[in-house]
Structures are given as structure tokens and as C-alpha cells.
Simulated scan of single mutants.
Amino acid sequence: MHITTTNQPPLALGFGNYTCNWGTHFCGLYETEAERDEIIMGFLAHGAQAGDLQCYVPAERTIEDFRHEFSKHCPLCEQYLADQNTMKIHSAKDIYYPDGTFSPWDMEDALNDVFEKSQRNGKRNVRTAAEMVWALEAIPGVDHLMAYESRLNYFIAEKPWISICLYNVTKFDGKTILQVLQTHPYTISQGVVTENPFFQDPDIWLAKNAPEFLRRG
């Protein structure tokens, strides 16, 4: 089933026979490890075999555990696990708060760097996914996470890029999940992909909730 998400070319999401378009920002909501892995394993396996750049941040599992499970899910993909040009797997700290503090601006700079490097030898598609439970820790600046999620819609627009932010609904409170829904235009839940009726354009959400991140000075 195709979900038209942008005017960019289509791609296979890797689960549920869904396709969508590049330039899309999803939240993946799940309750169990099986639900989470149904999303992530197929998503990354399709990308690896297609030659896309994969960037993945495990948080509920170790990097070693992910490598083991991914190899079992897609034996043909094992060759890509050690290839940083195909699969970049990092800890949450390395990606989101390498200096000990989370900053939406620093994240945006880091993502721009990843994107620019990925395109140096010609247009290349980029798939990113992250388990977001790291944000439940008392990390300085983590209260700005939803501002980052909202701004991510600016960053992804018109790029050959797709992101899935994975939220365990048994660990985050209802207020946070509502904010997650407000900052992601499409959702994945119980294996179903839908356009999100709770989504708010970042211009609107940021103006109301985090005006200091609406524009970069």
C-alpha cells in the first residue's frame, strides 16, 4: 500500500508492504520489542540492500545485540554491518549529547554534516532511525527534545531522507506522546502507517511551545 507523503520518489518502508515518499518524518509507537523490531529490521534491511545510507541509534538494546538480531533477520545484510559507508550505528550519547548536553541547534548542525557528506559523490538516499528512550534520562537540555523533533520537519523537507523516531508508549507519559504526535506528520502504530491528524506545522508548534527555536539567530 502506498502512502503519498511528499512529491519525491517512492521507497519501500520494509514492513507491512508499505511504500511512501522520501522527505518524510515518522514516529514509530510501540509497546513490545517485537513491535519495535518489526518496524526497524525491515526498514534497515531494505535500505542496506538498496544501497541507502543507514543511521541507527539503539537505546533499549546494546549495539552488539542489535548487530546480532539484525544478522538473524537479514543474513544477506551482515556484510553491511561493518561498513560505515552503508550502516552507521551509534549510541544515543554519541549522537544526541556527545558533550553531555542535548541541543537542537547542535543536532541540526550534525545532521547537516551527515547529509552533506552523504551527497558528495552524487545524490544518495538516507534512512535514519532511533530508539528514543534515552530521553527519559536526566540529560541537560533534554526538555528541548520536542523542539528538535518539530524542527526536524524543516530539515527533512525536500531531501532524499527519511527518519523514524521510535517511542515506547509504555515508558513515556501521555503528555509526551501527545507532543510526539504534534511534531510528526506520519505515524506507525501496530503495523499501520497513517497520516497523523494531531500534527502541527513547525511554524505553529514552535511559535506556541518553543519560540526560541522558531528561527535561528
Score class of each variant (00 low, 15 high):
Ala45Ser: 08
His46Ala: 07
His46Thr: 05
Gly47Arg: 01
Gly47Asp: 06
Gln49Trp: 11
Gln49Asn: 15
Ala50Cys: 12
Ala50Thr: 10
Ala50Ser: 15
Leu53Gly: 00
Leu53Asp: 05
Leu53Asn: 03
Gln54Phe: 06
Gln54Tyr: 11
Gln54Ser: 10
Gln54Val: 07
Gln54Lys: 07
Gln54Ile: 07
Tyr56Ile: 02
Val57Asn: 04
Val57Lys: 03
Val57Met: 04
Val57Gly: 00
Pro58Ser: 01
Pro58Asp: 08
Pro58Ile: 00
Pro58Glu: 03
Ala59Thr: 12
Ala59Ile: 02
Ala59Tyr: 03
Glu60His: 15
Arg61Asn: 14
Arg61Leu: 11
Arg61Phe: 13
Arg61Pro: 06
Thr62Arg: 09
Ile63Glu: 09
Ile63Tyr: 12
Glu64Tyr: 09
Glu64Leu: 01
Asp65Glu: 10
Phe66Val: 11
Phe66Ser: 08
Arg67Tyr: 03
Arg67Pro: 14
Arg67Gln: 10
His68Tyr: 13
His68Ala: 11
His68Leu: 05
Phe70Glu: 05
Phe70Cys: 10
Ser71Val: 06
Ser71Tyr: 07
Lys72Val: 13
Lys72Trp: 11
Lys72Met: 06
Lys72Glu: 15
His73Asp: 13
His73Gln: 14
Cys74Ser: 13
Cys74Asn: 11
Pro75Tyr: 06
Gln79Met: 08
Gln79Ile: 14
Gln79Thr: 02
Tyr80Arg: 03
Tyr80Phe: 09
Tyr80Pro: 13
Leu81Trp: 09
Ala82Tyr: 11
Asp83Ala: 09
Asp83Asn: 14
Gln84Ala: 09
Gln84Met: 11
Asn85Leu: 15
Asn85Glu: 07
Asn85Met: 07
Thr86Arg: 04
Thr86Trp: 00
Met87Arg: 03
Met87Ala: 04
Met87Asn: 02
Ile89Tyr: 06
Ile89Ser: 03
His90Cys: 08
Ser91Trp: 01
Ser91Thr: 06
Ala92Arg: 02
Ala92Asn: 00
Ala92Phe: 00
Lys93Val: 00
Lys93Thr: 04
Asp94Gly: 04
Ile95Ser: 00
Tyr96Gly: 04
Tyr96Ala: 01
Tyr97Asn: 06
Tyr97Gly: 02
Tyr97Ala: 06
Pro98Ser: 03
Pro98Arg: 06
Pro98Ala: 05
Asp99Pro: 12
Asp99Tyr: 03
Asp99Trp: 04
Gly100Asp: 09
Thr101Gly: 10
Thr101Gln: 14
Phe102Pro: 04
Phe102Thr: 02
Ser103Lys: 10
Ser103Leu: 07
Pro104Asn: 07
Trp105Gly: 03
Trp105Val: 00
Trp105Phe: 13
Trp105Ile: 04
Trp105Thr: 10
Asp106Ile: 05
Asp106Gly: 12
Asp106Trp: 13
Glu108Tyr: 09
Glu108Phe: 05
Asp109Trp: 05
Asp109Phe: 11
Leu111Lys: 03
Leu111Asp: 01
Leu111Gly: 04
